[in-house]
Design a protein around this nucleic acid. Structure first.
Lengths: 186, 186
DNA sequence: TCTTTAGTTCAAATAATCTTGAACAAAATG
DNA sequence: CATTTTGTTCAAGATTATTTGAACTAAAGA
């Protein structure tokens, strides 16, 4: 029954490297379990929901595109999680839709270029924080400057102003390294 | 009463840039609130508890070392949180103890070199995952190789082996970039 | 058009994580 | 050495994030 989705001419890749695995209501090969496990850990490290790591891992460990239904069944995951997880993966460009001839619905394919994955992640999850952070720091600098003008000068004040400037420098460096990382992996 | 900790000759920096702020049971200046807020967001981005961000932020926004008690009072935080948070900050080298003459207990000073902060964080929080990941990937490669030998060859098998190899390459590159990042900020 | 299949949404349930508080240990004080 | 002050530990509670499930919309098939 777990296989009801992979009809006729679609032997699961799972079969290639056997050993059914013990997952929910599906049949993942040992190979797939291992790969999924790796991506679940990476997801955790990046602060991404486990379910998203599972989905990406399953796609990565599958030799062909999988349909929504396949994902739900093989991972034994709710449709809701699969839907949301796939949305996030598409939003960051980690997964894309491909048309599969003779099949009703679209199928999903993982992006396997590290550079693309990384830049998607950075653009979607990190960049925004950097941008709002920049504003925040600017207003801090304004605050310090005004206090300074208000005659509150002194050695402590100077140290704090120094720290705020350092914060600005961090911000700037951090912004600069993002494209460099992307380039490094390019 | 909130000030009971900052005795006699220790006017809080808070006073330098006034405006009491609305925090728990303490009196944080507007300046301190802003700085703390920035670090709380950074902490969140890095998957670090909010309380840890608060502590580091307070120290960063203070012109002089603070004692454990100061931290608890100014942030209106439990001793438990402060203790655990400071432990984590010390473990990553983000904060260190300094002796303050004439005072009973040690005081805490923030590390303000980005390079040091970053390398502490990477070494403590990222490196371990990389190392266990390396083992995991090796065992995957072994698995794929054995399946391959077992005569399960074919185009799909080849694709999966390719992906596993790619995973190994990612791992390697990732490991290589960590020191580069540290150097970039050095 | 009516029915069936496919996928999305979102409120509620669950799970994971963080914080608190109280009991305990360690060190300074008298 | 008894007492007070300082800080740690950890189980229980509070909070936050994730997952589920059921109601709903959209598209395909009859």
């Amino acid at each position: 029954m777990a296989h009801s989705a992979s009809t006729d001419a679609e032997p699961t890749v799972a079969v290639a490297i056997d050993d059914p695995g013990i997952e929910g209501g599906a049949d993942l090969s040992r190979f797939q379990c291992e790969v999924i496990d790796i991506f679940v850990r990476v997801a955790d490290l990046l602060g991404i929901p486990k379910s998203v790591g599972e989905i990406y891992g399953l796609l990565y460990a599958s030799a062909r595109p999988l349909a929504f239904q396949d994902i739900v069944e093989r991972l034994g995951m709710s449709k809701g999680s699969a839907s949301q997880g796939l949305r996030m993966l598409r939003a960051t460009g980690a997964v894309r839709l491909v048309y599969v001839p003779g099949r009703r619905r679209d199928h999903f394919l993982p992006e396997t270029e590290l550079r693309a994955l990384l830049s998607g992640f950075l653009k979607e999850k990190v960049q925004p924080h950097f941008e709002s952070g920049a504003l925040r720091i600017k207003s801090l600098q304004a605050l310090v400057r005004s206090s300074s003008l208000a005659g509150k000068e002194g050695p402590e004040m100077a140290l704090l102003r120094e720290r705020v400037n350092k914060l600005g420098a961090w911000q700037k460096k951090g912004g600069a390294i993002i494209p460099l990382i992307a380039k490094f992996f390019g």
